[in-house]
């Protein structure tokens, strides 16, 4: 079975990935909504900016996070001085870095779902007395739930394996920021770590596969409920 530090890495990975999804969702829903439903100046640029983590080297994302959220960064400094919160080199920081990396995936998934929503249904709700927020929560949100869920599960699976941004921004601290891929990397740097590395790789492989399958199953089930 797993050594204590290995299961610690596994649990930490699960926790970091879960937290990254929670950070992601509200922003991703908002951004996807803006990109599909609103016309504004700079929309194309904003769209590109949202997708940047897909094309940037993860190390660059980690570095930018350090600049902004480091203890001496504009946001990080304020957080530290006001609330005593330090994101860099912490578990929360690892979750943040993971969230930023998977953000485009979630936005993309929700956006496709939003594009598929029949605006006529929202109009119908409006004639039945529903205000904008009411319409969003009673009609739009349930209808895009499959997309949100699929995005969340994909982001969770991807988040289990985030390496570059995490090690740059949150470093490789056992029990705090040493997630599965970081543990695997550490094992490879250690003499006789091959067996550990293989086990960790197998775990990563299984988790990723399971995540993708669960995502597909859930989406199918929700679509069936909506009769599509």
């Amino acid at each position: 079975m797993l050594a204590p530090e290995e299961s610690a890495a596994l649990l930490l990975s699960l926790s970091v990935a879960a937290r990254s999804v929670l950070i992601n969702l509200p922003f991703a829903i908002g951004v996807a909504w803006l990109l599909t439903r609103r016309q504004f100046v700079g929309r194309t640029l904003f769209d590109a900016f949202v997708h940047l983590p897909l094309v940037l080297p993860p190390v660059v994302v980690g570095y930018l996070l350090l600049v902004v959220f480091g203890v001496r960064g504009p946001l990080g400094g304020w957080l530290y001085d006001t609330f005593g919160i330090q994101l860099a080199f912490s578990t929360a920081g690892a979750a943040l870095a993971t969230a930023v990396m998977s953000f485009p995936l979630v936005v993309r998934s929700i956006r496709i779902a939003l594009d598929g929503v029949d605006r006529g249904l929202e109009d119908a709700a409006r004639t039945l007395g529903a205000g904008p927020l009411d319409r969003f929560f009673s009609i739009t949100l349930p209808l895009i739930a499959p997309g949100i869920l699929a995005g969340a599960v994909t982001a969770f699976a991807a988040g289990l394996g985030e390496f570059g941004a995490v090690i740059t921004f949150a470093s490789n601290i056992p029990g705090e920021t040493r997630t599965l891929p970081l543990a695997l990397y550490t094992a490879l740097q250690t003499p006789d770590g091959d067996a550990v590395a293989a086990r960790l790789a197998l775990i990563s492989f299984s988790l990723g596969l399971a995540g993708l399958l669960v995502s597909e199953l859930l989406a199918r089930r929700l679509r069936a409920r909506l009769g599509r």
């Binding site: 006529g120 249904l121 109009d123 119908a124 709700a125 409006r126 004639t127 039945l128 529903a130």
Partner: peptide, 20 residues
């Protein structure tokens, strides 16, 4: 007056029932 406050009922050609 916003559509939601008009109290005008509409039945659309495609029914537009809420599928969920």
């Amino acid at each position: 007056v916003d559509a939601r406050h008009r109290r005008i009922g509409v039945v659309f050609q495609d029914a537009r029932l809420f599928p969920h």
